[in-house]
Simulated scan of single mutants.
Amino acid sequence: MSDVNITIIDREGVRHEVLAPTDMNMNLMEVCKSYELPVQAVCGGMAMCATCQCYIISDHDLGERNDDEEAMLWEAQNVQENSRLGCQIPISADLEGLIVELAPEED
């Protein structure tokens, strides 16, 4: 089993250093849920709710947003240039050292 180190900053500014497995086909939203971080994931990871929106703080190349992610972020609140949906970020070895911040909850 191979894990990557990821830092997740919650909505209160607290940093959580987590280990995320690369061999379980998980995404960042699922990792947040497994560590009981406040991510609702209302749609279950289908890029349909933006409750797992986060800001990419580190300089990792996560590739382009797919059409579903782009459409959802177009409708979401608190979107920034570095916004991504956690459910659309598969955990891989390339994410070693990733730092993300959870976006504020929508009103």
Rank of each mutant, 00 (worst) to 15 (best):
R84D: 05
P104Y: 00
Q80N: 03
P21M: 07
H60L: 12
G44E: 08
E70V: 01
C54I: 07
L62I: 09
E30M: 15
G13P: 08
A93D: 14
R15H: 13
I9F: 10
E101Y: 00
M26D: 13
V18P: 03
I8T: 09
Q77E: 15
V31I: 15
R65D: 08
A20P: 10
R15I: 00
M46H: 12
E96P: 05
M72W: 04
G97R: 13
Q40T: 05
N78W: 09
I6P: 05
P104R: 01
A71T: 12
M26A: 07
V4T: 08
L73V: 05
V31Q: 09
W74Q: 15
V14Q: 15
Q53V: 07
A41K: 09
L19E: 14
H16G: 07
G86R: 02
Q40Y: 12
C49N: 08
N27M: 08
N27C: 13
G86H: 04
M26C: 06
E30I: 05
L28T: 02
G86I: 04
Q40M: 12
M24G: 00
E36D: 15
E12T: 12
P90C: 04
C52P: 02
D10P: 04
P90E: 13
E36P: 00
G63I: 09
S34R: 15
V14F: 13
R65E: 10
A103I: 02
L85N: 02
R84A: 07
T51Y: 13
V18G: 01
G13C: 12
Q40C: 06
I8S: 03
C87G: 03
A71I: 02
A41P: 09
C43H: 05
T51V: 10
H60S: 09
E30K: 14
A41V: 02
M48Y: 07
A71P: 01
D59E: 15
N25K: 14
D67V: 06
D94M: 11
